[in-house]
Design a protein around this nucleic acid. Structure first.
Lengths: 265, 265
DNA sequence: CCAAAAGTGTTTAAAATACACCCATGC
DNA sequence: GCATGGGTGTATTTTAAACACTTTTGG
């Protein structure tokens, strides 16, 4: 542990200790929520991770459900705290419940390190976690770490570090889920800025599906189901023919969301 | 309440009271599992329900997760107890977490009725429930009620009674999920007996999707992806041309399960 | 021998795929 | 003026949908 670390802990001690000793008065026991926050930037699919100080490992942004709170609300709250965004597109995708997924050792060691002697804590108990998958506009996110974390950063989906517990598995499952989603729902609206070019949209699909798509057929298919509106505006400052900007036709987009659109490209 | 009811309660009192007062020593708090058990019989899609004595309403078969048990194991255990079957095809499909989904009133009234005064019980607390969807061979199931229930019966999917809490919603979500599944996975293996005829398989699909399919195109598609083996045996005693029996080619079936098969019929 | 339901094949329409040429821009 | 990447159209293959006739069986 580097020299400043222990001191840093001190600043957060009160809140953290309270969480370990009294969190169960506020939150449901045994249940947590973990979020996979996907973003798209520089033609790369990214995921927002936290560096958990107590475990010295990267981890998914997560949290707990308040005693009178809907789980979806808990997920929204967590997402807002890490990204600053309201109205995030998200959905639960899987529950992870292996009895051996526990941070008891890590957590009690951590408490010792910050000088607290606690034999029992709701945080030492078993947790079942519900995975939420969220799609956000990268450019609008301002990553904020939580009290348990010393960093909050984007990672390229192909460059994920070792992660806490089964968080790596959770992330993989989320990605798999996103790929499936893509076949049936339009996805770009949540991941792209309001205006975007066709090549950008295509790159998004290619990145998620992890395969190349034919430029012309892709365009035909996307334009064909009418969820896009082309703007009378082209991208500036490119060393070749300038692509048009597009934006989503919200009404038709929503409709396609419900009806499904059988994308297999 | 009919006259015999209270007496009937007595026989179960010990186990039930123990459950209310000490269940939290055995099970995780705040988390339950509810199962939607689908079967297919007489060309109808059926669901197995319990009549909950404490609520005097039909309810989904459900249960709780033991302190050191994987949630999937809990679901398997519950499924086995109600159906007698091991190795059931099942999967979680959604978590229901509205804070208002609570049986506190119903449960405490019930305890009063059986003569127990308990102000507190883990069973009065809020529960988040994980829905599991299961597909079973109707002919192999022997429905068994649990201690909280006075009946365990199959219901036609189009003839579902009023149900406890949000169980109706859970059932609808499960059905929706099953319809989606059908588009990407073969489904018959779990719902049909080993030998079955093409018209039976088609009826299964028609029942789940709730629409008519073209007999010839259906057959071509199903046979086309090679998951079936036709037997040299026809159905006996039908007043018309006898259909062949088929069975699933397990190897190819499993492969199709993974690869998906884009059924949209 | 006829009604009922199953087996099989063909024709047509739609969708996915593959592929080629022209256009605009910055260097 | 040329390399880069974007815009657009067409021909081909594959897949889905619609449809008709023949076969078997019990009554």
């Amino acid at each position: 542990m580097c020299p400043g670390t222990l001191l840093l802990y001190m600043n957060f001690d009160k809140e953290i200790i309270e969480h370990y000793l009294k969190g169960h008065e506020k939150y449901l026991r045994h249940i947590s929520v973990d979020c996979i926050i996907f973003g798209f930037h520089n033609n790369e699919l990214k995921v927002l991770l936290l560096y958990a100080r107590y475990a010295q490992l990267w981890a998914l942004p997560g949290g707990f459900i308040k005693k009178e709170e809907h789980m979806d609300e808990a997920a929204k709250r967590i997402l807002k705290e890490r990204t600053g965004l309201n109205e995030i597109y998200m959905q639960q995708f899987h529950v992870f419940s292996a009895p051996e997924r526990s941070t008891k050792k890590i957590n009690s060691q951590f408490l010792k390190n910050v000088g607290v002697k606690a034999k029992e804590s709701w945080m030492f108990e078993r947790f079942i976690t519900v995975g939420y998958s969220a799609l956000v506009d990268f450019s609008k996110v301002e990553p904020v770490a939580d009290v348990f974390s010393s960093a909050c950063e984007w990672f390229n989906i192909h460059d994920i570090p070792d992660m806490l517990l089964d968080h790596g598995d959770i992330l993989n499952k989320a990605l798999e889920n996103l790929q499936l989603q893509l076949n049936y729902h339009p996805v770009g609206y949540n991941l792209l800025p309001e205006k975007f070019t066709m090549p950008e949209l295509q790159k998004l699909y290619e990145t998620i599906l992890d395969k190349k798509l034919d430029r012309r057929n892709f365009q035909r298919k996307i334009v064909g189901n009418g969820i896009l509106k082309r703007l009378n505006e082209t991208k500036k400052g490119v060393a070749h023919k300038a692509p048009y900007y597009y934006k989503f036709d919200l009404r038709k987009y929503q409709k396609a969301l419900k009806g499904g659109m059988g994308f297999e490209l």
